[in-house]
Design a protein around this nucleic acid. Structure first.
Lengths: 145, 145
DNA sequence: GTCGCTTCTATAAGCACGTGATACGAATAG
DNA sequence: CTATTCGTATCACGTGCTTATAGAAGCGAC
């Protein structure tokens, strides 16, 4: 038996912690926030550049009609834009607008500030433990894709 | 300056990690899962026992009509039940049923299994780092309430 | 008691957000 | 050119939230 590495990481406990921390972040959101899928899609467009509707739908785990409607709403609110693909007359290329980028930046700032306020009440050594685990959590996230 | 404890924990980075890990968990859910608020409400009822509608609405951060409707759906699906308060004829006491508890247990098992599968691909020392940070994350979660 | 105020829940109308089924033009294979 | 597939849009519908409002039950002043 390996004592140091076999650290008894309970998946259920981690899942519960992630779930509760997420709802903590979520309730700190501005009152009229965009939906989870809308935010995730905008983030993806910001990160990966213009993408087709079906591509976005598959990546976000929703149906194609759902993505069509989401993009319509995002377009109506000026957060995303559509362009025709010069090579294929069927496809619609979706991209994030400057307003969309600003919204994402503002959301991130609000969340970070909210979380920072809570972190301020956490002991320094606990913060250090979380900071030490953060790269591992990011690896975990990447493994899941 | 303290070198060891001042570990530069970036709130924005932690927020982003929590957000992405959550969506990882979420996409591993069964296809016809209950809503976030429904799950959170059932968990609360399981944890805290019977509660009034308005109390639940406030705790979950939704309006009272939303909670009324949510409880109606939960009741229709047999996951929650309503009882009159003998001391106050206005209030409705909501509680989770055995079916509701079973659903919660099943959800937890599915999530844990899903997360465990991903964790299996993570290096042991990274798992150990996360395990070491888990109590701190749980403290953080408690600070946010 | 009963009048008025507050508290707790329910209802109604409307929008956001998802689904499956289906329609339709553009691309493509034969 | 025709048939088929691909990418997107539309339709009908259900859920889950909102605000506004109704209505019943409790409670204090008188």
């Amino acid at each position: 038996m390996q004592a140091a590495t076999n650290a008894q990481l309970d998946p259920a406990r981690l899942a519960s912690a992630v779930e509760r921390l997420f709802s903590l972040l979520r309730h700190g959101n501005p009152p009229n926030d965009i939906s989870l899928t809308a935010a995730s899609t905008l983030r993806r467009l910001e990160r990966e550049g213009p993408r087709r509707l079906t591509e976005l739908a598959a990546a976000e785990g929703v149906t194609q009609p759902a993505m069509t409607q989401l993009v319509q709403r995002l377009e109506r609110e000026g957060l995303a834009a559509r362009a025709a693909d010069p090579d294929d007359g069927r496809v619609v290329l979706v991209c994030v607008t400057d307003d969309g980028r600003e919204l994402l930046a503002r959301r991130r700032a609000v969340r970070a500030q909210h979380l920072a306020a809570i972190l301020g009440n956490l002991a320094d050594d606990d913060q250090a433990l979380i900071a030490a685990a953060l790269p591992a959590l990011e690896k975990l996230e990447r493994l899941g894709r």
